[in-house]
Design a binder for these strands. Structure first.
Length: 283
DNA sequence: GATATATGTGTAC
DNA sequence: TACACCTATATCG
C-alpha cells in the first residue's frame, strides 16, 4: 500500500532493523545484481523517505540506494533466517547476525544514485506532510494560482509529496471539497485545515501501517464547526469513507458514492457531502 | 490457465 | 490520452 506513510514507516523500520549493522545484499531475481554487489557487506547507516521515494545510505558508498515502490511494490521486513527466495525478489537484505531479512519485490525504481541525481529527484518534490520542517506555503503557492482540479493538484508530487489515490479521495471528502473544483477556489483557512489534517492522518497511517481516515473519535468533516459528532458505533468495520466504495451509501449523508476515472486514476467522492459549489453555510 | 486489478510514474503520440 | 512497466492476488472459465 505504497503512499507516503508506507515509505516513512519502511524507512523507520529499515533503520531500526539494519541501521549501524553490516548487511548482506543480493538480487535473487538478478535484475539488480550489480547494485546489490556494490552494497553487499557494507554498513547500512540510515534509511529516509521523501514523499514516496526511499533513500538508504551506506558507509563508504558514494551513492545512495533509491527505491520507489510504484503501484504494487513491497518491502516487508521479517525475522528469522532468510528462507530460499520465493518469486521475483529484486533485492534482499540480510542482517549481519542473520536474525532478520527484507525482500524487495516489484519496485518501479531500484537504483544507486549520485548526489546530483538524488538532488534532481528531491527538487521535483513538494513539501511532504510527514517530514519535519515541511513548508506548506510552497504547496499553497502552487494551489492558489492553479486552475487545475484539486484532485489533480493533490496527486501532483511536485505540489505535495506523498499523497496517493486513497489519501486524495479521503482528504477531499473530509473537507467537503468536490474533486473537480479548481485550486483557485480553495480558501486559505480551508487549505490550512487540509494540510493539518494530512499531517495527522498520514502520521496515523505511518504508525498503524494502514490508511484509516474514518475514526470514531473525530468528525467525518473536521472543518465543520459544531457539526455532527463522530461516526460512532457501527462504523468499526470501515477504514475509509469513499475510496473504493462506489455505489455504496455515504456513511454521512446516505447518497451513493460516485466513481469516475479522471486522468487515468480512480476517483471517488460523495455528491452530497462534496457539492460542486460550496453551500453558503460553509463559506 | 487466462484475465482483471491495484494505494504510481514516465514516455510517446 | 494511451500505453508500458513492475508483481501478486483475486476471480472467472
Amino acid at each position: 500500500m505504497p503512499e507516503g506513510h508506507t515509505l516513512h514507516r519502511l524507512a523507520r523500520d529499515l533503520t531500526s532493523t539494519f541501521g549501524g549493522r553490516t548487511v548482506t545484499a543480493s538480487s535473487p531475481q538478478g535484475r539488480f545484481a550489480g547494485g546489490a554487489a556494490l552494497l553487499d557487506g557494507r554498513v547500512l547507516l540510515e534509511a529516509d523517505a521523501w514523499g514516496k521515494h526511499l533513500f538508504v545510505d551506506f558507509a563508504e558508498a558514494d551513492r545512495r540506494l533509491h527505491v520507489h515502490l510504484g503501484l504494487y511494490g513491497a518491502w516487508p521486513i521479517a525475522a528469522g533466517p532468510a528462507p530460499a527466495p520465493v518469486g521475483a525478489v529484486r533485492l534482499r537484505f540480510v542482517g549481519g547476525d542473520g536474525s532478520s531479512y527484507a525482500d524487495l519485490r516489484g519496485p518501479t525504481a531500484c537504483d544507486l544514485l549520485t548526489p546530483a541525481e538524488t538532488r534532481r529527484i528531491l527538487d521535483g518534490l513538494g513539501p511532504d506532510p510527514l517530514r519535519d520542517g515541511a513548508d506548506p506555503e510552497r504547496a499553497w503557492d502552487r494551489i492558489r494560482r492553479s486552475r487545475a482540479p484539486l484532485a489533480t493538484l493533490l496527486m501532483d508530487q511536485s505540489v505535495i509529496a506523498g499523497i496517493g489515490n486513497v489519501y486524495r479521495a479521503e482528504i477531499l471528502f473530509r473537507h467537503r471539497l468536490h474533486p473537480l473544483r479548481p485550486g483557485t477556489s480553495l480558501t486559505r483557512p480551508r487549505f490550512e485545515a487540509v494540510w493539518g489534517d494530512l499531517v495527522a492522518l498520514m502520521t496515523d497511517g505511518m504508525r498503524e501501517g494502514r490508511i484509516r481516515t474514518l475514526r470514531e473519535s473525530d468528525r467525518p468533516h473536521p472543518a465543520d464547526s459544531g457539526g455532527r459528532a463522530g461516526p460512532g458505533a457501527g462504523w468499526r468495520d470501515a477504514d475509509v469513507y469513499v475510496y473504493r466504495r462506489a455505489g455504496e451509501a455515504c456513511r454521512v449523508c446516505g447518497r451513493p458514492i460516485r466513481h469516475e476515472v479522471v486522468g487515468g486514476r480512480n476517483l471517488f467522492w460523495c455528491q452530497g457531502c462534496q457539492p460542486p459549489i460550496r453551500p453558503r453555510s460553509l463559506r
